[in-house]
Design a binder for these strands. Structure first.
Lengths: 148, 148
DNA sequence: CGGTCTGGTCAAGTTGATTGACCACATGGT
DNA sequence: ACCATGTGGTCAATCAACTTGACCAGACCG
């Protein structure tokens, strides 16, 4: 694979990601969630894990803890997240998704599935599975954060 | 492909894009370009095409023309772009990459190729070609703009 | 206990983008 | 030829997300 094809592949990945993000955003809006940005989705993914604190979230998103704190404040205001005391550390406050937050997560997953369903129409089912397998091998596990 | 696998695939694409963007950013910094954001790269790609105006660029990036104008002003200040009069329209100003701008574009392409080269190590050459072919079929051609 | 580290927030400043106003020139009809 | 309207572009003010800096309360450790 020469440089030309390599950069071309990189651009295809970026373009695919643009489609995924735009598609999710559209799908979310269609489902009534028009007050959330992609960054919120990445935050939801981390908060869904047990015992998440603001500092954990900041690290996950690659921002400062202040930025994470502000983002959480917004989610709390909108009823997607609650702050609960940490039984083991009186300083810390554990973040947890409310029922609304979980519903929102399900909507985002459905929207993402819709985008891939569109791909399924132009690509045989087996190829989509192969695509999945190849990406899993290529991609190093790591945080999924706003990238550009 | 069920919903679970579909959303999983969508997340893999996002994660792959995160790697590409971060890798390019690192590679650019290593080559001495530490004053450019990913958005600038997308602008370069459009400006490289003949007869690009600020309005064209704004449409490509999905922003307002004012934002595009500011972005261009920054690139002009840093010597990557020049504004030239349009022989056919005295209002318009055609954008063109300087030699520095073209060198920068080459550096970005090299950095992107480096990222893909890393993938080549964990995936057989033929599979990488297949990945390329599948993405090309799946992805609808369109602007490559900052997405999240 | 006192010193230091860590989780978290408040406050102010920075930056990229937006809305609104405006000018110079193009275009099309009369 | 002229005026109405549309388009390319910039200036100015505002907005929103994020940053740096300061700070407090509680944990950890000698």
């Amino acid at each position: 694979m020469d440089d030309r094809a390599a950069t071309d592949l990189a651009m295809l990945v970026l373009r695919a990601a643009t489609e995924v993000v735009d598609g999710i955003q559209e799908g979310m809006a269609a489902r009534g969630y028009d007050d959330l940005r992609p960054a919120h989705g990445f935050a939801f993914a981390r908060i869904a894990a047990a015992d998440t604190t603001v500092v954990d979230l900041a690290e996950h998103l690659g921002t400062t803890k202040q930025a994470a704190s502000q983002l959480v404040a917004g989610l709390v205001d909108r009823g997607y997240v609650v702050r609960e005391p940490d039984p083991r550390d009186a300083r810390a406050r554990l973040l947890r998704l409310t029922e609304a937050g979980e519903a929102c997560t399900r909507a985002a997953e459905a929207a993402a599935a819709d985008v891939v369903a569109g791909w399924n129409e132009v690509l045989p089912r087996a190829s989509l599975g192969a695509l999945h397998a190849m990406l899993r091998r290529v991609v190093t596990p790591g945080p999924l954060r706003p990238a550009w």
